[in-house]
Design a protein around this nucleic acid. Structure first.
Length: 124
DNA sequence: TACCTGACCGGGT
DNA sequence: AACCCGGCCAGGT
C-alpha cells in the first residue's frame, strides 16, 4: 500500500495531493475480506482524504477494469448498493455479494452493520 | 467563466 | 430510517 502523504499549499494549507489517491483506495478495497463489506466514508476516513467519501466513489468508478479489486464489497453508509449500475448488469453486484453469503434485499445488504469491515479498526 | 451533477457523509430536524 | 443542507472536488456542458 502506498505511503500516506500530505502536501502543503502556498497558503499553508495541508491537503492531499490530487488524483493519486486512487491506488491507495484500491489497496484498501483489496483487503476487504470475502463475505464482508466496507463503505466509501470508512475508506476516506482511513486514508485521511480531504476530498472525502465522494472521491472514493469517483475512484471506484474508474476501477472497473481492475479484476483484483472487489468493488462489490464497497457500499454506502446505509448499506445500499449505490454503485450497482457500474457493474455489467443491474443484478451483477448483488449476485457477487450473494455468492459470498451476503444477503441483499431491495438493494440493501441485510445486517450490514455486523458485516462492516472498517479499515480504521482492522488495519494498522 | 459558471453551473451542474455525482458509486458520499455527518449533522440537524 | 428519512429528509434537507452544506462541504467535498473532478468532469462535462
Amino acid at each position: 500500500m502506498a505511503e500516506k502523504r500530505k502536501i502543503t499549499t502556498p497558503d499553508g494549507l495541508v491537503a492531499d495531493p490530487p488524483r493519486d489517491y486512487f491506488e491507495d483506495v484500491y489497496a484498501v478495497v483489496r483487503q476487504v475480506p470475502r463475505g464482508r463489506v466496507t463503505t466509501y466514508g470508512a475508506i476516506a476516513q482511513y486514508l485521511s482524504l480531504r476530498a472525502g467519501a465522494r472521491m472514493v466513489g469517483w475512484a471506484m468508478s474508474s476501477s472497473h477494469t481492475r479484476e483484483d479489486v472487489p468493488a462489490h464489497r464497497v457500499i454506502n453508509r446505509l448499506g445500499v448498493l449505490s454503485g450497482k449500475n457500474f457493474f455489467g448488469s443491474p443484478t451483477r453486484m448483488q449476485e457477487l455479494l450473494e455468492a459470498e453469503g451476503i444477503h441483499v434485499e431491495n438493494d440493501q445488504v441485510v445486517g450490514f452493520k455486523e458485516l462492516l469491515w472498517d479499515p480504521s479498526l482492522e488495519l494498522n
